[in-house]
Nucleic acid binder design. Structure first.
Lengths: 332, 332
DNA sequence: ATTACTTGCACAATCGATTGAGCAAGGTTG
DNA sequence: CAACCTTGCTCAATCGATTGTGCAAGTAAT
């Protein structure tokens, strides 16, 4: 990890081109015409830069500039369709807007979230998007102190603008779909069980509300024990269901594709009655429609969420309610 | 995106603490004991830094330091189990080693790959890992010119050390598995079809070789038209298969989970004979075992690959053959 | 009471690029 | 030919943190 070969600087190029460092700098950053550098010198410098494998030192450059054009993002995971898409599209959209994206993955660890946020601010990010953060307000507070804009995505915070899915409506729709299919396929009408997530997390709470309201409307009452929001991992949802051996028709509302992994495992290992189970999942996966018993999935509208988030960048912080983005219900 | 509130610097803290900037600096970067700063002053500075929401300016800090401890990585995608895992584990392992990971996603676009690589070098990355890069040697050449170490992951290059999966062996094993299942379930013995990927890409070529050798060993000869390596997207593999209406038993070797999306779409839309199809896929997905007809998947050993890659960091570049990491065959 | 350490800091150069200001050479105008 | 403008650069300060060097005040030793 040592560089025997020191990196080429504008001073090296200046010597080679027999020009001043400032001339070289203006050639390389595109301001040479404004600074009345001759095309001849500009060409010479550009050729030398190419030859020498010159790459600007961002550290030095940003130190002097007033703007960094860096936008930071933290996400809980990459290896997940939803968050992976968010990170990917965020990078693409930032580049398309002439900004420099820096994304980092924080594994749903509150401390790592905070450390990573500080790190991004250290890199002079001008705006930080906290995606699915456990404690977004702590991050926003630090951003405020540093004069950095902060925006919440996926999970809302109280002290910075938030762009999130319309979890309640989508959960109602998904619940209705599952109930309809249970009725149609199994001649059974609930109540459904709710699997996965954490009740302390805003999205799970909103989804649970939609889940309950949709059933209340049909005068179905859901026993407390039917709500199994014991965490996000596949293992946790599998554990929550382990003891459950349905002796008749059953329906499940699964709170994420991660929990879904546990659910399908449980489902596939049922000794009997597997065909009497119907479920739907909040979050979409390309292979979801092939899972037996799966009647539909909610696809969150990542593109619209990010467009809204980018609209907020640079705007004065108006702290209204979270901006709700409608989801798409994918029916199988 | 403007900071009305200028960021706090060590000079601000120095004034507040009634100390010199150099004392403040050494307190904040942990060298204060070595520099014989009193604990009293150190505590005062730390408290002020906390209060003021101080975050070091990485730009200024790195400009002066000789080492950045930054390791860069480019990956084609995040929203994919394999690459998502790579990015996630890379970040975690880098942090565990006291390094600063910076990852960026390049969408399999050769120009973006190169631009992103330059960008990471501009950030003073001391080592750059090119994952699944279309033209890794171009990137390595630039790294060499800049005195930056480069390492290839997933796809090999000729001018930098490479850590890749043992594609050939895993493809042989997977082919054997598919053939065995075709024999057992359908009483049919090939030849199989190969779907997805690009032949110009090293991994596809190695997998095809394993695919062909496994069949050659059983004296099965594969017609050229059975090799449908027309690209990576789901759409492309679906298109390649569109015209194929099997009139008897069939087996497919699917070259990636992305191609698999196209294959399952084709399979699910078959008018008849869907139960006469068996396939296996190179790359693993948690829902893969629930896809009808899927007999097994190859899981690449991301952790081992990254461990090897990290072992190479800082080592003098020894240019041997690519380091091959065995895969795990997941049998359904 | 002098010399010799130790403690606890401050000074100032430095990293590489940016940018306002300035200056010399050549050309144009009246 | 003097006054003025244009062209094509160079100079030097600056961004914020790091770090080798130095120095004053206090303490210990002789």
């Amino acid at each position: 990890m040592e560089n025997e070969t020191k990196r080429t600087t504008i001073y090296d190029l200046a010597k080679l081109a027999d020009a001043s460092p400032s001339a070289v700098s203006s050639v390389l950053n595109g301001t040479w015409e404004k600074r009345r550098i001759s095309k001849k010198l500009a060409d010479r410098v550009m050729r030398l830069a190419e030859e020498q494998g010159y790459a600007v030192n961002v550290q030095a450059s940003l130190l002097r500039r007033e703007r960094s054009d860096i936008v930071g993002m933290i996400v809980p995971k990459y290896a997940n369709r939803y968050f992976g898409d968010i990170a990917e599209q965020f990078e693409a959209m930032a580049r398309a807007r002439g900004l420099f994206p820096v994304v980092t993955c924080t594994q749903r660890d509150p401390d790592l979230e905070f450390e990573a946020a500080k790190e991004l601010i250290s890199y002079q990010a001008e705006c930080l998007i906290s995606t699915g953060a456990t404690d977004p307000d702590r991050i926003s507070a630090f951003c405020d102190a540093s004069g950095v804009q902060s925006i919440n995505l996926d999970l809302p915070g109280k002290t910075a603008p938030s762009v999130i899915s319309d979890n309640y409506s989508a959960a109602r729709d998904l619940t209705d779909l599952i109930l309809d299919r249970c009725e149609r396929d199994l001649g059974w009408s609930g109540p459904l069980r709710f699997v996965g997530g954490r009740l302390t997390d805003h999205n799970t709470a909103a989804r649970l509300e939609g889940f309950l309201d949709a059933q209340r409307e049909r005068t179905i009452s859901v026993p407390d024990t039917y709500v199994m929001a014991t965490g996000y991992s596949a293992q946790k949802s599998a554990n929550a269901l382990a003891a459950f051996k349905p002796d008749g028709p059953t329906g499940l509302f699964v709170n994420s594709t991660i929990s879904l992994e546990g659910v399908v495992k449980w489902h596939s290992e049922l000794a009997s009655g597997a065909d009497q189970v119907r479920y739907g999942c909040f979050d979409w996966d390309p292979f979801g429609s092939f899972l037996p018993g799966n009647v539909g999935m909610v696809e969150q509208d990542v593109t619209s969420m990010l467009i809204k988030a980018f609209e907020l960048i640079g705007k004065p912080t108006s702290l209204n309610e979270p901006i709700l983005i409608p989801c798409k219900l994918r029916i199988f």
